[in-house]
Amino acid sequence: MANTTTTATDVAEGTAEAVGHAADAAGHAAESAGMPQLDFSTFPNQIFWLLVTLVVLYFILAKIALPRLAGILADRQGRITSDLEMAQKLKDQAQEAEKAYQQALIDARSEAGKIVSAARAEIQADLDKATAKADAEIAARAAESAKRIDEIRAGAVASVSEVAKDTAEAIVAALGGKADAKSVAAAVAARMKG
């Protein structure tokens, strides 16, 4: 029916003719055979199958595919929302943990400071005690030394008077006198005082 066959009868005539024929044929086909689109005898068939197709498609889509797709998209949206919430929660927790960590750090620092100052105070106390003890010892030793010096000094004075007595007696004896021990002692004592 639409088989409008154009024949390029003479191949040697070349394209000009072939193109001419082609254009003729294209025009011709539409005119003589008519467009298959306007062949009304096919309309009932096309319309029937179109309606069947549309109804089938509608039920497939409306009953199965679209609710499923809506569900998938809603699920995804829900998942994204809950994931974001979860992320926010975790972020908050992390911030809290960081805060707690910072607090712990501050606490630990102040604790350390306390311990250090306590230790320092203790050491100072020990040091003070040790210093005091050392001072006391030094004082005691100094006192003892002073006492010994006094003793030595006293001993030296006693020795001086002895030596003086003996010397005086010897001098008196050398002079030919007879030394009276008592008077010599008294004289030495008198001299020693003066």
Binding site: T4, T6, A8, T9, A18, A22, P36
Partner: peptide, 9 residues
């Protein structure tokens, strides 16, 4: 026979 044209077939 050469070129055939049935664009509407």
């Amino acid at each position: 026979q050469g070129l055939t044209f049935h664009p509407m077939d």
